[in-house]
Design a protein around this nucleic acid. Structure first.
Lengths: 336, 336
DNA sequence: CTGTTAGCGCGTTCAA
DNA sequence: TTGAACGCGCTAACAG
């Protein structure tokens, strides 16, 4: 393990002062061409790399952006991560992705790490567990730009990119009602998160509008999973009044529902209508193809990045609340 | 944007020297309890956060580990990212994920970023584009521990975690042969990457062993995608001699193959046997269920992290070549 | 128990 | 065109 080479090492080797080396490396015009070329050649030769810790210590800025997501192996998030990464790269930034695993505690520690390392900005979708937003408030105190997307903290004044969850869920519910379904269940998660609360309200308001009595809002605590989907359908099917349609907040649960339905001889869409948020890689192969609500990941990534970039360049001041809403879309298939 | 609070600010406020503050914050026993409590209280109150740039500048180490993957929205990688993130967290590290997007150029820049920021270690699966491994060699020069998994650079002396691609592909090929398939095509990617080369050799050697004449090794250049799968099957089906089985290196392509097969009336498994690497979230719902080769993501994550941790703690020296191989497994279903 | 001093690597004065 | 000196925030060695 050789010690890392510094500008002083180069300076000593070339018999110039380290400040000259510093200038040469940054193509400062006020340095002799010969000296500069010698420095650059030596630096390349010895694979000199700037020590960013020193640079940032002096207050100069950073091109690393942090992206915090609950879960990386969920296609909604991995798509956004992927798109943001490419977008950022094309603009000269590097994205570091952090996964909270849906845990408030991990989220807090990640935010602290970000502060300690002076990231240029942060893009976040919060964990299900997160009830307190103080840790995000601290970011502004340190002057670090922050943008929320999808799952946001309402009470933190900063730009936010939301999806029209209320409207799209209401629309999905109404679609089911118009198709003749009357007992619609809604599987979603904790209403402490805007996303699930909005969906829940869209669902309930539409039931009310059509005067339907059957209400089955289920807020799951556990992580969305195939197993959970199976369990939930089997539970619902053992109740005195069965649902005749389900809106599911997660494809993982939806797959479980379809498997359980097949196992129990429940026919889709005849016995059970189905609409799911998100889409499957293999959605076209599955029979019946599932009507799904697609979220515009690319658009979310672009808007979020644009807002963050404007904050970094001071076009938007830190602490300013801006709300953008993007539209999800129902892709109608055969499952209802 | 307030300036960030430093130990000197605290020192001035409390009329002690900043070194005392430093000691207090790190619970150095040689500091008066009263002073220490005052410092800690003040720090908490004003949300003091260590400036890691200063700490690292002094040479102290870092708890951030970099993870470089080609693509985050591919389930193999996102599973590993997810597992590694949790593993690292439980051991007090934070994982930063970087996506190369399969591009050598991006990979190089990411490695430079990692060097400039003094990460504690790096875990990598290389991009398809990567033909030159110099940028990884540089990491050792800077004393940064490096572990490869899955897609590795053979010529860089450092720990590597591989999958038994040769054996498992040979086994899959043999299985198809024993089932009576004779014209087996193999869809994979560039043989400049160990993973695809090993699979290719496993396939070819098994054809040779059984004296089969039909050979159809296809090394795709483009990104694996559903569209590509469709195109490839349709192309194969227009050849004078059609394949009667396919081994696919990617579920994305496999989905495309299945869609094209359905569209063209090609029956699976009767007209075409199918084995795919990787598995689908919805694999159980799909008809026919596809025989797939599952890779042990959890094990890969654990072994890779373990090796890296041992390098960080100097139990394993930098530059030492260690090869571990984990076993993929064929899950037999109805597609062949 | 606490203060002083020095230096990590870099960029930016100010002076020559 | 180059050099000298300083300081970013922090910790460690040394001195009281």
């Amino acid at each position: 393990m050789k010690k890392r080479i510094t500008i002083k090492d180069i300076a000593k080797e070339l018999n110039v002062h380290h400040s000259t080396v510093s200038r040469a490396l940054r193509n400062d015009p006020r340095v002799n061409e010969v000296t500069r070329d010698a420095v650059l050649a030596y630096a390349r030769e010895h694979e000199y790399q700037t020590n960013m810790n020193a640079v940032q210590l002096r207050g100069t800025s950073n091109n690393a952006i942090a992206l915090i997501v609950p879960n990386i192996n969920h296609s909604f998030f991995s798509d956004i991560v992927s798109k943001l990464t490419n977008l950022a790269y094309s603009k000269g930034y590097v994205i570091s992705v952090f996964q909270t695993n849906e845990k408030y505690q991990q989220e807090k520690e990640i935010v602290n790490t970000i502060i300690r390392h002076n990231f240029a900005g942060v893009i976040v979708s919060i964990a299900k567990d997160t009830v307190n937003s103080d840790h995000f408030g601290v970011l502004s105190k340190f002057g670090i730009p922050l943008v929320f997307f999808d799952r946001i903290c309402e009470d933190v004044p900063t730009p936010k990119v939301k999806i029209n969850n209320y409207e799209i869920t209401a629309k999905a519910t109404e679609y089911l009602i118009k198709k003749g379904y009357r007992n619609i269940a809604h599987l979603t998660a904790t209403t402490s998160i805007n996303v699930f609360r909005d969906r829940e309200n869209g669902y309930l308001d539409m039931l009310k509008k059509y005067g339907l009595e059957y209400q089955q809002p289920i807020m799951v605590q556990d992580d969305f999973s195939i197993e959970l989907g199976k369990k939930l359908l089997s539970g619902l099917w053992n109740m005195p009044v069965k649902p005749d349609a389900i809106i599911s907040s997660s494809v993982h649960m939806t797959v479980g529902i379809m498997l359980e339905a097949r196992k129990s001889g429940i026919r889709i869409p005849e016995d059970l209508g189905l609409i799911t948020f998100g889409s499957l890689l293999s959605s076209e192969i599955i029979e019946p193809q599932v009507t799904c609500i697609e979220q515009p990941e690319a658009e979310i990534a672009e808007i979020s990045f644009d807002l963050l970039e404007k904050m970094i360049s001071h076009e938007i001041e830190i602490g300013k609340s801006i709300e953008k809403t993007v539209e999800a879309e129902i892709i109608f298939k055969k499952s209802c």
